[in-house]
Amino acid sequence: MNIKRTLQHLVIVIYIAATASAFSYTLFRYKVPGVPDKLRRWSYGMMAPYQTYRTSNEMLTAHGLQSDGTWVPISLDEYLPFLRGERGMRSYLLTFWAQGEEVLEQKYKELAQVTKRLEGDRGREWEDVRLTLEKWPMSPAGYEYLRHDPFISVTKLHD
């Protein structure tokens, strides 16, 4: 058996093992022993879209503190130029979310500082910037139809 053929068989075996392991995890949450976790998770990630859904809308929002002590909404449209769904997913900072709550909060804090810097570059100076997550019920009448009191709730994302 020459080297090329050996490598081809190696690729086939690794691929089958990863896919079979991902299947067993997808369907039964069973981890096949001997398959590295990263390989299984990678393969699982390719067969796991759209497992869940939300019953309320959520959106990352920013507010800037003025010198008179009032908080004013900042539009993030310019900084998040994505379709609404993709924008939402990116706003969760899922890569950092996977590293734990503490890291996630720290990253939102950093993102608030980035927002403050970018706003300053555009001539809009704020004493401070804070990021929050707004949540409101969905409605067939429109995405933002119920985005107002008393339906809206706000979660602080960092200190």
């Binding site: 690729v11 896919t19 997808t26 390719m46 796991a48 879209p49 497992q51």
Partner: peptide
């Protein structure tokens, strides 16, 4: 490999819906 991955994705996506509570 590409054809099998497409199949695996489709089967995985399809079968997991049989037990996913949502």
């Amino acid at each position: 490999l590409i054809a099998l991955q497409i199949t695996a994705t489709f089967i995985g996506v399809g079968l997991q819906k049989l037990w996913l509570p949502l």
